[in-house]
Structure formats: C-alpha cells, structure tokens
Amino acid sequence: MHTRKSFLYRSAEKIKALALTGLSLPLIIKNLNAQRSGSSLPELVAMRGGKGPDDLFSRGIEHLGGINRFVKRGGTVLVKPNIGWDRTPEYGANTNPDLIKAIVESCRKAGASKVYVFDHTCDHWRNTYKNSGIEASVKAAGGEMIPANSKSYYREVSIPGGVTLKKALVHRVYLDADTVINVPILKHHSSTMITASMKNLMGVIWDRYAWHRMGLHQCIADFAALRKPDLVVIDAYNVMTRNGPRGYSKSDLVEYKYLFMSADQVAADAAGAMVLAQSSGIKTPRDIGHIRIAEKAGLGSADLDSLNIKRIVI
C-alpha cells in the first residue's frame, strides 16, 4: 500500500543513495585512475644512493604516480616532519631540511594553495624550528611554518576503534588539511625501539606524555587509524642507530642513504624497522609493538615479502 509515509521514506532512501554516490564519485574515479595507470603502481618505493634524500624524493615520486596523485590543485597540504629536537641537521635527530624543501616545493608546483609545516616539538619549539634548518627551508620553498606550542591550536576528537586511546587533542591543521604527507626521519628510539612514520604522529597531538603512561605502542597504533596520511616519506639517509631519539653525537649515525615512500604507513615503517634490524635485536618488523598492532588492526601491511616493492638504486 502506498501511503504518503512510505513514499516519503522511499524518497529519502533514494536521495541518500544518490548523495552517497555523488560524494564517493571522486573517490571512485580516483581508484579507477589508480587502476588504469597500472596496477603496476608499487605499494612501496624503496630508494638508495643519490645525492641526498631530496634528490631521491624528486627521482622517486613519479613511481608512486607523481605528487599530483596526492595533492589537489587549490587544496591545503600538511607536511609533517620530525622536528623534535633542538639539534642541527648533521646529528640526524630531525628530518633532513633539504628533503622538506623538495617536498614543499613539489606540493606548491602541484598547485597546493597552502603548504603547512609544524611539529609539536620536545625541545623548545622556536629553537628547534630554527636550528633544524627546517624553518628556513619551508620559507624558501613557499610553505608556511606554523606553531604547535599552544593547546589553543588543538581540537579534541575521538579515536575510532581506539583500544587504549579513546580521545586525543589533535592539531587542527592535521585534521583539516586536504592532504597529509608524513615525513619522519628513521631513528632508533630508547622506548619504542624505532621511530618512523606512526611514531612521528605523536607530534600532532597535544598531550604526548599521556601516551607514555598509557602505553606507547598501543596509543601509537590506535592513533594511526584516525587519519591515515596520504603519503609517507621516510628519511633514512643518515640513520641514528643508537642513543635515539635525541642522539648524542654524529657517531650515532650510519649513512645508509635510504628513502622509503608509500601510501601505506605500516609498510613504510616495516621497511624502516628492517634497516634498524641490522644494528639491533629486531628480526622482523612485527617485533615492534606498534607495527604489529597496527597491522592486526588492518591499517596496512608489514609483510614486506608479499608487498609490491619498487627498488631503485642510484
């Protein structure tokens, strides 16, 4: 029987369906495009050699479909390096400033309206921004270095599926940017064994010490589900293999000359873990708590043997 009520119900259903299709259309097209440009797109690009991490990025990004795959014309981008420590670039405690410069530049070239860069630093933020060389790099490349030192920049969100971490105060720009590019530096870490991309996201939340007491690995993995970065670029050129994450001297570094790029943060971190495996007791990426938990939660794959990896040695 067609009553007015049921008619309205069915109409509402149809409108909903239409709206959903409309909303997800760009996503579908994007997926189709990705498929057309070849299922040949690798899940992980692993690079080695070159003149520096910036050189490797410029040469390698094409293999992931180019920066335009990630950056929308007119959109906003957050490039999130690791700028935790008041140390100069040669100590390898922060992401290489030249790499940040290359990434910001390419985002601008791709038509990004704004490219933001920040980190909620461990040491005093102003010194850290300056002495890491990243502030100058970002300015030169046409990006905007923004502060993260005040609670007023953060917004509380609930973490979907969070086991330990249910809520977090997250930097607004991380939540609002159209594209997030996570650019950590690979380092040894005294508590979590490695720090790469997922650990680097501790720099977009306000109360990082809460994670220390709630259990780092579970919190890191929980948070990684909130918003998967669109692209992960791991600077593993000069790798701090001990005394991390701050490091003491240049003797803590090994010049491996690697750079890993992926849209899968778990895969990227797994590659990083295997680099540090050479100087530690790590055997497989799953030895790292947060990688193991994140993979189980379906955030990505740590199975380096079955991933489609493009290896490039320059």
Partner: peptide
Amino acid sequence: CITNTDGIVCGACSEHCPTKAVYM
C-alpha cells in the same frame, strides 16, 4: 618509575637526556 610499578614502556627521561646519562 611507572615501568616498574605499572609494567609499561615510558622512557621519556632517557629520550630527553642530551648526554645519555639517563639510559635504558
């Protein structure tokens, strides 16, 4: 220390130590 009392990973002190006088 909460690693002792609660059995969880923390290490914030060692992370921040510039000379590694505090180590894990």
